Amino acid sequence: MTSDLEIPVRGDATFDRAIDVLRGQRLAVLTGAGLSTDSGIPDYRGEGAPVRTPMTFQAFLASEAARKRYWAGSHLGWRAFGTARPNTGHRALAELESAGIVNGLVTQNVDGLHRKAGSRRVVELHGGMDRVLCLTCGQQFAREAIADRLSALNPGLEVEGAIRANPDGDVDVEDAASLVIPECTVCGGILKPDVVFFGEFVPVEVFEAAASIVRGSDVLLVAGSSLVVNSGMRLIELARRRRMPIVVVNRGITKGDSRAAVKVDAGTSETLAAFAEALIA
């Protein structure tokens, strides 16, 4: 594989130790928001990350005003978020899977960029912003269809100029009292992006699919996650109990550093590209 980025880690002792751990093994991969920053999506906790209060599932259910604020911000953010494209790191992981090195990929991201990059066995722990779910009947809708309905119902909502979407695809909106939210066309129920809000649990079957990828692999590679979210640490603990080596790639400290066989403190895109170049014969 060739990369369009300069690789600063090649020949570094830590990088070489990571390659020694990864070479010849079947990899389970866990990715977080740090992998998508090179695609223009900010992360939650890195340097310069916005300070914000996320929408909780309880507030979304309890308050129509909260739903209006959320949908206004999510709609505006989607126009920027939905056009993001995979970066070198996403493409490197897809190539590693095609080469039979990556057994499967688990992501905490909701941006869908792994699927866009060509990864096939992907478990989205926290769902995907490109889908919308009815909370009453369970009907799923394509996000673009709901976005078109929102635009038609609220012609004054669109704004001109660049919008910086948050990591989960929304922007902060102060006043959305006049917003009209589309209802489910099947049952008239409440619509919600098919993502796990704060206060929700990862569905059991989704976590089991993620755990299955880890159990079927030899090494767990973590890329771009601070591992603050419990779902990621549960997979780290699963790997540790199975005595699987763990390789962490992230700028800055993560909760998994003490459990890692190797920690590479570097950017994820360039490091994953270098991994692919070294591991694909």
Results as ranks from 00 to 15, higher is better:
residue 163 I to T: 08
residue 139 Q to D: 06
residue 225 S to A: 04
residue 160 E to T: 10
residue 146 I to F: 09
residue 199 G to W: 14
residue 212 S to F: 00
residue 153 L to I: 05
residue 152 A to P: 06
residue 152 A to W: 09
residue 165 A to S: 15
residue 165 A to V: 06
residue 149 R to Q: 15
residue 207 F to Q: 12
residue 185 T to W: 07
residue 233 M to C: 01
residue 161 G to P: 12
residue 172 D to K: 12
residue 184 C to I: 06
residue 193 P to F: 05
residue 200 E to G: 00
residue 192 K to F: 03
residue 211 A to I: 09
residue 222 V to K: 08
residue 217 S to D: 05
residue 168 D to E: 12
residue 156 G to T: 14
residue 203 P to A: 00
residue 183 E to I: 05
residue 137 C to N: 11
residue 193 P to T: 06
residue 148 D to R: 15
residue 175 D to G: 03
residue 227 L to W: 11
residue 227 L to D: 07
residue 173 V to H: 02
residue 227 L to H: 10
residue 169 G to N: 11
residue 167 P to C: 04
residue 227 L to N: 06
residue 231 S to N: 02
residue 214 V to L: 11
residue 183 E to S: 13
residue 197 F to G: 14
residue 140 Q to M: 13
residue 147 A to G: 01
residue 210 A to S: 10
residue 148 D to I: 12
residue 166 N to A: 11
residue 223 A to F: 02
residue 198 F to T: 03
residue 161 G to C: 12
residue 237 E to Y: 04
residue 210 A to Y: 06
residue 183 E to V: 13
residue 163 I to H: 02
residue 201 F to Q: 10
residue 229 V to M: 00
residue 134 C to Q: 08
residue 217 S to F: 04
residue 212 S to N: 07
residue 188 G to K: 00
residue 199 G to C: 10
residue 176 A to K: 02
residue 219 V to T: 11
residue 188 G to E: 01
residue 191 L to T: 08
residue 220 L to I: 03
residue 194 D to T: 02
residue 204 V to N: 09
residue 154 N to E: 07
residue 144 E to G: 01
residue 226 S to Y: 05
residue 204 V to K: 14
residue 187 C to T: 04
residue 217 S to I: 07
residue 169 G to D: 09
residue 144 E to L: 02
residue 236 I to V: 15
residue 194 D to C: 01
residue 168 D to N: 03
residue 208 E to F: 02
residue 196 V to S: 12
residue 213 I to F: 10
residue 157 L to D: 11
residue 211 A to Y: 04
residue 165 A to D: 12
residue 135 L to K: 07
residue 140 Q to G: 08
residue 162 A to S: 14
residue 222 V to Y: 08
residue 228 V to C: 00
residue 206 V to R: 04
residue 208 E to G: 03
residue 155 P to S: 11
residue 147 A to W: 06
residue 163 I to Y: 03
residue 176 A to S: 08
residue 228 V to G: 05
residue 157 L to P: 13
residue 183 E to G: 13
residue 231 S to I: 01
residue 192 K to C: 04
residue 158 E to D: 15
residue 227 L to P: 12
residue 177 A to L: 01
residue 138 G to C: 06
residue 170 D to T: 07
residue 204 V to Q: 13
residue 169 G to W: 09
residue 213 I to D: 03
residue 195 V to Q: 13
residue 218 D to I: 12
residue 206 V to D: 05
residue 219 V to L: 11
residue 159 V to R: 12
residue 184 C to G: 05
residue 145 A to W: 01
residue 236 I to W: 07
residue 203 P to M: 00
residue 237 E to K: 05
residue 183 E to M: 05
residue 199 G to A: 08
residue 229 V to W: 01
residue 151 S to H: 13
residue 233 M to P: 00
residue 199 G to L: 08
residue 196 V to R: 12
residue 191 L to D: 09
residue 218 D to F: 08
residue 133 L to N: 13
residue 133 L to V: 15
residue 156 G to S: 14
residue 185 T to K: 06
residue 134 C to I: 09
residue 181 I to V: 15
residue 198 F to I: 03
residue 205 E to Q: 03
residue 146 I to L: 11
